[in-house]
Simulated scan of single mutants.
Amino acid sequence: MTAIAGFLYPGHSAEDDFPRMEKLLNDAGAAVRLPLVHTDIGTDAHRVDALLEMGSVDRLTAVLPDLTAQGAEAVVWACTSASFVYGREGAGDQVTRLAAAAGLPASSTSFAFAHALRAIGARRVTVAATYPDDVAALFAAFLRDGGAEVTAVRGSGIITAAEVGTWGRDEVLALVREGDDPTADAVLLPDTALHTAAWLPDLEAAAGKPVLTANQVTAWEGLRLLGHPTGPCPPMGTLFSAGRAPDVS
C-alpha cells in the first residue's frame, strides 16, 4: 500500500529534492508519495524575527487544504530554522497546533533531526550549517535540549534561502568537510533550502560517517509518522539503509 506523507515547504529553493527522493524510494520498492505545497515565507532571511514570522502557524495552516487534497496522511513542516527558532517547547507547540488543524500526525524538520539521530544511534554530532552563526547556535541548542552532544558548530553566514538554493555538489561537499569533527558520530546539514538528495552517498563518503541533511530527514520523518518501511535505499544514505519500518516511539 502506498504511503502518502505531505510536506509544507517554505518558498522555492530546493523543493525538487522531494520528487527526487520519491523516485529513489520507489525505485527501491518503498511505495511512497511525497506531495509538497509551498508556504508564504514573508521575508527571506535567516534572522530570528523573520524566522518567527515564517513559522507562524497561520502561515502553515493557510495551505493545508492544498496538501490534504493530495491525500496526505501525515504532514511535516519542511523547515528547520523556522521551527527550532521557537525553542524546543515552542517548536512542540507549533507541531501540536499543526496536527490539530490538519487532523493528521504532524512534525517538523527540527524534530526529524532529533528522531533520526536516535534511529542511527548517533549521540555526538557536529552541525555544518549554511546559516549565520547566531542561527546555527540556536539549532545546536535545540539538539542539546533533546539530549544530543554537539561537538562543533559551523555557520556559513548566508542570509537568504534563495542563495542557499544555488549551491551545487562542490559547495555542499566542502560544507561537510569543513564542518566535520573527527570525534562526532554524524554530520548534520540543517537547511531545507540546500540541495542534498542527489549526493547523499558522496557526502557520507567525504565525511566517513553518517550525514543527515534537512530534506533527507524530513522525508524520513513523514514516513516515520506513518510507520512505513523505507527501503533499504542506499542512495538515501545511512538513515534509509536498514529498510525497516521507522521507530515511532
Rank of each mutant, 00 (worst) to 15 (best):
residue 2 T to D: 05
residue 7 F to M: 09
residue 9 Y to Q: 11
residue 13 S to D: 04
residue 22 E to S: 03
residue 23 K to V: 10
residue 24 L to A: 14
residue 27 D to H: 12
residue 28 A to D: 03
residue 29 G to D: 05
residue 34 L to H: 08
residue 40 D to T: 09
residue 42 G to E: 01
residue 43 T to V: 13
residue 45 A to R: 15
residue 45 A to L: 09
residue 48 V to P: 03
residue 49 D to G: 04
residue 52 L to G: 07
residue 54 M to K: 13
residue 55 G to W: 08
residue 56 S to V: 01
residue 57 V to G: 08
residue 57 V to W: 13
residue 57 V to Q: 13
residue 58 D to V: 13
residue 62 A to Q: 13
residue 67 L to F: 02
residue 67 L to V: 04
residue 67 L to C: 01
residue 72 A to W: 10
residue 77 W to E: 00
residue 77 W to M: 07
residue 82 A to H: 11
residue 82 A to P: 07
residue 82 A to K: 11
residue 90 G to C: 07
residue 90 G to E: 04
residue 94 Q to F: 00
residue 97 R to P: 04
residue 104 L to S: 11
residue 104 L to V: 12
residue 105 P to A: 06
residue 107 S to N: 12
residue 109 T to P: 07
residue 110 S to K: 13
residue 113 F to R: 14
residue 113 F to G: 02
residue 120 I to R: 14
residue 122 A to V: 09
residue 125 V to Q: 13
residue 126 T to W: 07
residue 130 T to S: 11
residue 131 Y to E: 05
residue 132 P to C: 08
residue 132 P to F: 11
residue 135 V to D: 06
residue 137 A to W: 12
residue 138 L to Y: 05
residue 142 F to G: 05
residue 142 F to I: 11
residue 146 G to I: 00
residue 147 G to A: 01
residue 150 V to E: 02
residue 150 V to K: 08
residue 151 T to R: 15
residue 152 A to H: 14
residue 154 R to I: 04
residue 158 I to G: 09
residue 160 T to P: 07
residue 163 E to W: 10
residue 166 T to K: 15
residue 172 V to A: 00
residue 173 L to W: 01
residue 175 L to N: 01
residue 176 V to L: 03
residue 179 G to N: 00
residue 183 T to Y: 01
residue 183 T to F: 03
residue 189 L to H: 05
residue 189 L to Y: 01
residue 190 P to M: 02
residue 191 D to K: 10
residue 192 T to N: 12
residue 193 A to M: 12
residue 194 L to T: 02
residue 197 A to W: 06
residue 198 A to R: 15
residue 199 W to P: 02
residue 199 W to A: 05
residue 201 P to D: 01
residue 203 L to Y: 01
residue 205 A to R: 15
residue 209 K to V: 00
residue 212 L to E: 02
residue 215 N to F: 05
residue 221 E to T: 09
residue 222 G to A: 00
residue 226 L to D: 02
residue 229 P to M: 00
residue 229 P to S: 04
residue 232 P to R: 15
residue 236 M to C: 07
residue 238 T to W: 05
residue 239 L to V: 05
residue 241 S to T: 06
residue 241 S to Q: 08
residue 245 A to Y: 04
residue 247 D to F: 02
residue 248 V to N: 13
residue 249 S to N: 10
